[in-house]
Amino acid sequence: MYSKDTVADLLNLEVDQLQEIAHTSWNARALHAIRKCRTKALGGHLDWCRECNKLHLQFNSCRNRHCPTCQGHKQHQWIAARTKELLAVPYFHVVFTLPDPLNYVAIRYPKVLYNILFDSVWQTLSAFGNNPKHLGAKLGMIAVLHTWGQNLQLHPHLHCIVPKGGVTKAGFWKKGKAKDDFLFSVEAMSIKYRGLFVSKLRKALPELPQSLYDELFKTVWVVYAKPPFGKPENVIEYLGRYTHKCLFQPKSIPVFQSKSIPL
Score class of each variant (00 low, 15 high):
189 M>T: 04
102 L>E: 02
103 N>P: 06
141 M>C: 11
8 A>L: 07
126 S>T: 12
209 P>A: 03
98 L>V: 01
257 Q>P: 03
239 L>H: 00
34 I>A: 03
178 A>H: 03
127 A>N: 09
153 Q>C: 12
15 V>Y: 15
259 K>N: 11
9 D>M: 12
84 K>N: 03
9 D>W: 09
162 V>M: 02
239 L>C: 06
52 C>V: 15
26 W>G: 11
101 P>A: 06
59 F>A: 07
57 L>P: 09
6 T>A: 06
112 V>M: 10
126 S>N: 12
139 L>P: 00
189 M>P: 06
33 A>Y: 03
179 K>L: 05
254 P>A: 11
257 Q>L: 13
101 P>V: 05
44 G>T: 01
143 A>D: 01
227 P>H: 08
41 A>F: 04
250 P>H: 13
155 H>V: 08
256 F>R: 12
157 H>V: 09
54 K>W: 12
83 T>F: 00
98 L>T: 01
36 K>P: 01
111 K>N: 15
62 C>M: 07
196 L>T: 01
120 S>C: 08
171 G>F: 09
174 K>T: 07
171 G>R: 09
60 N>F: 01
131 N>V: 09
214 D>W: 03
100 D>P: 00
113 L>W: 10
205 L>E: 01
143 A>M: 08
239 L>A: 02
20 E>Q: 09
10 L>P: 04
64 N>P: 08
181 D>L: 07
33 A>L: 11
54 K>H: 15
148 W>A: 08
200 K>E: 07
172 F>S: 14
43 G>I: 03
152 L>I: 10
59 F>N: 09
